[in-house]
C-alpha cells in the first residue's frame, strides 16, 4: 500500500515496515539532489517530525516522517549517489525504512490519485 503526504513524501507499507522517500514531483521541483543527510537508525519519530534533509545546490529541504515510528534501515547508496533520487525517486531513491508505531495514521494520507490531483492544483 502506497500513500502520499501534502509535504511530498511517499510511504509504501509492507507488513509493519514502510519504505519512505520524496515524491517524483518533489525531486523535479528541487532539481539536482546533491546530498542526503540520512537519519540515524533507531531514531524514533512522530508523524510530521523531521526525518532528514535533502539538499540541492541552492536549497536544503526537510523531509518529514509521513507516519510515526522507528527508523530501521536507511538507503546508504544515497551517500555516494544522491542522484538516485532524481532518477527514481519512488523506487531506488527511497531514503529510509520505518517501523510503524501507529498504522492507522496511514488513513490520513493521500492515495496516488488524490496526490496527483493535489499537485496539479499547484500546492
Amino acid at each position: 500500500m502506497k500513500r502520499y503526504t501534502r509535504t511530498h513524501e511517499w510511504i509504501e507499507v509492507d507488513g509493519k515496515v514502510g519504505r519512505v522517500g520524496i515524491t517524483n514531483y518533489a525531486q523535479d521541483q528541487l532539481g539536482d539532489i546533491v546530498f542526503v543527510e540520512l537519519p540515524e537508525i533507531g531514531k524514533e519519530l512522530r508523524k510530521g517530525e523531521v526525518l532528514c534533509t535533502v539538499e540541492s545546490v541552492k536549497s536544503a529541504s526537510d523531509v518529514y516522517a509521513p507516519v510515526s515510528g522507528k527508523v530501521v534501515e536507511v538507503n546508504v547508496d544515497l551517500d555516494s549517489q544522491p542522484e538516485k533520487i532524481n532518477k527514481d525517486a519512488e523506487g531506488e531513491g527511497w531514503i529510509a525504512k520505518m517501523e510503524l508505531s501507529n498504522p492507522s495514521e496511514l488513513d490520513e494520507l493521500m492515495t496516488e490519485e488524490e496526490y496527483e490531483k493535489f499537485c496539479s492544483q499547484g500546492e
Partner: peptide
C-alpha cells in the same frame, strides 16, 4: 557547499 550558509539555511 552553500547550503551550509546563512543565506540558505538561515537559523540552521
Amino acid at each position: 557547499f552553500q547550503t551550509r550558509e546563512q543565506h540558505i539555511r538561515r537559523e540552521k
